[in-house]
């Protein structure tokens, strides 16, 4: 009788130890697997937005909830960083081959005054006709940039170009369940490595 009780307690302790081990192991493995991603793990809910696409239709982030979304901010008159980012993303799509159909690239203009729908359309189509350029009223762009912690501001450098726009140039990866999962700053734009991350997320 007494032995049975001791036995039960021992079993209970053993179970607790096993569960504890399980939790610890799970956390170690989870951390390890996240560290394996090429992008910086970000893990933040992706704020919903509605903007105007380059065909003049109103679109929301939730319209793409069956895809992995790569979103970044820029402007058509940006001569150096934006085209570099665009071609990097285009190379990611090439790397993905058929799987690129499950990826949507969104380019949000931080220059709504100059980036008309037509201008964005030719800009996007030049790189890849599946890319979607988004614009809106300056207030709408402000709100989205703010929601996404994207800083941008006009710079009036002493230059023949009217103004340039300093802006955050990272690419954000949003999972189909609406989480900004990974972030790619300018020094992390190797197309093959980004494609490998996407294949793991899909």
């Amino acid at each position: 009788m007494k032995n049975k009780k001791v036995f039960r307690i021992l079993i209970a302790i053993l179970c607790l130890i096993l569960i504890g081990w399980g939790i610890i192991l799970y956390q170690i493995m989870d951390v390890k697997s996240k560290a394996d991603f090429y992008g910086n793990v970000y893990e933040r809910e992706a704020p919903e937005f509605t903007l105007t696409d380059h065909n003049g239709s109103r679109v929301s982030l939730s319209d793409y909830d069956d895809k992995v979304v790569l979103i970044f901010f820029g402007y058509a008159n940006c001569p150096d960083i934006c085209p570099m980012t665009m071609s990097a993303v285009n190379n990611v799509m090439d790397e993905l081959g058929d799987k690129s159909k499950e990826v949507q690239v969104l380019f949000v203009s931080v220059d709504p005054e100059r980036d008309t729908e037509e201008k964005l359309k030719s800009y996007m189509n030049y790189f890849n006709d599946s890319f979607v350029g988004l614009t809106g009223t300056p207030e709408e762009i402000d709100r989205v940039a703010d929601d996404y912690n994207v800083f941008y501001e006009k710079e009036y450098v002493d230059s023949a170009s009217e103004y340039l726009i300093g802006h955050n140039s990272s690419i954000l990866l949003i999972t189909p369940d609406g989480e900004i999962f990974l972030r790619y700053p300018q020094n992390r734009m190797d197309p093959a490595s980004i494609a490998a991350d996407i294949e793991r997320v899909l």
Binding site: D80, I81, E155, L164, G166, H167, N168, S169, P185
Partner: peptide
């Protein structure tokens, strides 16, 4: 590109 990822010219 500064440490916050802001590209400026």
């Amino acid at each position: 590109v500064d440490e916050n990822g802001i590209a400026k010219m």
